[in-house]
């Protein structure tokens, strides 16, 4: 049965091709980062410049801050680039990270339906949240241990709203990323806390608009950390450090400042300041 033999030969050849095709290795580092940096398009803007300057490719896995840090704890990333200072410092104290460096900030914005049924518009995020709770107006929470989720919980706490007792049907815990949560908010005309970058890049806005912005408390700091090679020996220390150095260098900081959507600057470099 020669047909059978040629059939099997073709089968194994394909398999071999497949195996070798996926083996191709190149110089790269893996960065665990947040959906806000990826989905706002910042990485698409920054990474080609870094790769050109260093010859190192950057593979970004975009998750919530909490997940990104957990992924790094398991040793599955070389660098973390996230925005939750408390969680980042805990990560360092546990010995998973070498050192935290501040890179840039953007800000959170409170998004809500344009008619503003809870009369939440204003200049004080805490007062706005109290009004939303008082009106029992629908509010969508990320609920995914992300940096934005952590910030949202901090604001509720500072505002004196104890979610454990006041949480009702109006508070929708979606357990999803920024984009999906915004989609949910758009479809049910709910209030939601978002980072400005994702909001600006977000297309399916429906009736939603910015309700509160520009307040100092809404400041959102991004930090970058090299995963500790003492903890995970396979970490690409040299490449990872190069990426961090570049981010905080004059060239990297300039690139960050230059990224704009519809003429609006999304991230404000503040390394070493």
């Amino acid at each position: 049965m020669t047909s059978r033999r040629s059939f099997l030969a073709a089968f194994y050849t394909t398999l071999l091709l497949v195996a070798t095709g996926t083996q191709a290795q190149e110089r790269f580092i893996t960065v665990a980062s947040t959906t806000s940096t990826e989905q706002s398009g910042l990485f698409g803007h920054l990474l080609p410049a870094f790769t050109k300057a260093s010859g190192i490719k950057v593979r970004v896995v975009a998750l919530g801050t909490g997940q990104a840090l957990d992924m790094a704890r398991r040793g599955d990333a070389d660098v973390v680039f996230v925005h939750d200072q408390a969680a980042e410092e805990k990560f360092i104290v546990e010995g998973y990270g070498v050192k935290r460096q501040e890179v840039m900030y953007n800000d959170f914005v409170l998004i809500g339906p344009k008619p503003d049924p809870a009369r939440a518009a204003g200049k004080d995020i805490l007062e706005s949240l109290r009004r939303i709770e008082a009106a029992k107006a629908p509010f969508v929470s990320r609920g995914d241990k992300s940096g934005t989720h952590a910030a949202e919980l901090r604001y509720w706490k500072t505002a004196g709203v104890d979610l454990n007792t006041r949480k009702g049907l109006w508070y929708r815990d979606t357990g999803s990323g920024m984009g999906p949560a915004l989609n949910t908010a758009a479809s049910m005309n709910a209030y939601i806390l978002a980072d400005r970058g994702t909001w600006l890049a977000f297309k399916n806005r429906g009736e939603l608009g910015i309700v509160v912005e520009g307040e100092t408390r809404l400041f959102n700091q991004y930090g970058v950390i090299l995963v500790n090679p003492a903890r995970h020996p396979h970490v690409k220390q040299a490449g990872g450090q190069k990426f961090i150095d570049w981010l905080v260098s004059a060239a990297g900081q300039k690139m960050i400042a230059e990224y704009k959507i519809d003429g609006e600057q999304l991230f404000f470099p503040n390394a070493g300041r």
Binding site: Q39, G179, N183, A201, F202
Partner: peptide
């Protein structure tokens, strides 16, 4: 879902859905 490395059709669809 790494751009250019492991981004396939379904993960791209999920990503674009996230972006709205």
């Amino acid at each position: 879902n790494i751009d250019g490395v492991t981004r396939v059709m379904t993960t791209t669809i999920a990503l674009e859905t996230s972006k709205g």
